Every structure is written in C-alpha cells, then in structure tokens.
Computed example of a mutant assay.
Amino acid sequence: MPNIALELGRLSANIGVNSAYGEQQDVDGVRIVPVAATWTGFGGGSDESGNGGGGGGGFSAPIGAYVRRGDTLTFEPNIVSLLAVGIPFIWVTGRVLARIIRVLKK
C-alpha cells in the first residue's frame, strides 16, 4: 500500500501559482493571462493495523485577467465572480469588527 502522505504531496505539487494563473493567450495582438482565486485542502491518516485513507478537494473561481496592450498592463476584473469571492470575506470581516467593538465597549 502506498504512503498516503507521499501521494498527497506528489499530487499537490502542481497546486499553487499554476492553479491561480492560467497560461498566457494571444488574441488579436493582445496578451491575456487569466487569474483565479483557488482553495484546496487535503487530509489523510491510518490506524494501527495499517489501514489508511485520504482525500482532498478544491475550488476555483475566475476573478479576472491581466491584459497587455502594447506597453500597458492592466487588470480587468470579472465583476460577478469578484463579488462572489468578496462577499463572504466582507461578511466575516464585518462580524469580526462587530465583536471587537462590542468587547472594547465593555
């Protein structure tokens, strides 16, 4: 039976910058590099008898693209996806700030 930790390490070697930034595309003289927000997670374990298991998962949401026209490089966001990624972050930040303010008032 293969070592679960080594297998997960081998599989996760391609995760990181390669999953957040896509390959450069050239369209009508304009260079485009797609950008995504990515989350991944893995887990594994075994018991005393050597029976083990593991798993993983991930999520990716396109948030925009870097666009180069001539000498100008700009980021053009995908507004719908950017809002979908940003709303949970803003909600959590608001909850944390509300609790901090409540503690400081006491």
Rank of each mutant, 00 (worst) to 15 (best):
S49L: 05
P77T: 04
V67Q: 11
G55D: 10
T74H: 06
R68D: 01
R68W: 08
G58V: 10
G52T: 04
N78H: 11
Y66G: 07
P62W: 09
R69M: 09
T72W: 12
L73H: 11
E76H: 08
V67A: 08
S60A: 15
A61E: 14
R69E: 01
F59P: 01
G52S: 04
G53F: 12
D71G: 06
P77Y: 03
S49A: 01
F75A: 10
G52D: 02
T74Y: 04
T72E: 13
G70A: 08
I63W: 03
V67L: 11
G56T: 13
G64L: 08
Y66A: 06
F59D: 11
G58Q: 13
G58F: 12
E76W: 05
N78E: 06
L73Q: 14
G58P: 09
G54T: 05
T72N: 12
G57L: 14
S49W: 03
G57E: 15
A65Q: 13
T74N: 08
S49V: 05
A65E: 10
G56L: 13
G64A: 05
Y66M: 11
G50V: 03
S60T: 15
G50W: 00
P62A: 12
T74A: 10
G52I: 02
A61L: 12
T72K: 14
G70Q: 05
T74G: 03
N51W: 01
G50Q: 04
N78V: 03
G55V: 13
N51T: 06
F75G: 06
I79C: 02
R69I: 15
G70Y: 05
F75I: 08
N51G: 00
R69G: 02
N51V: 00
T74D: 08
F75Y: 13
R68A: 09
A65T: 12
P77E: 01
T74Q: 12
G70L: 03
N78I: 05
G57K: 15
A61V: 14
I79F: 00
G58C: 09
S49C: 01
V67D: 03
G58K: 13
F59V: 15
G50A: 07
I63Y: 04
S60F: 14
R69A: 10
I79E: 05
G53H: 10
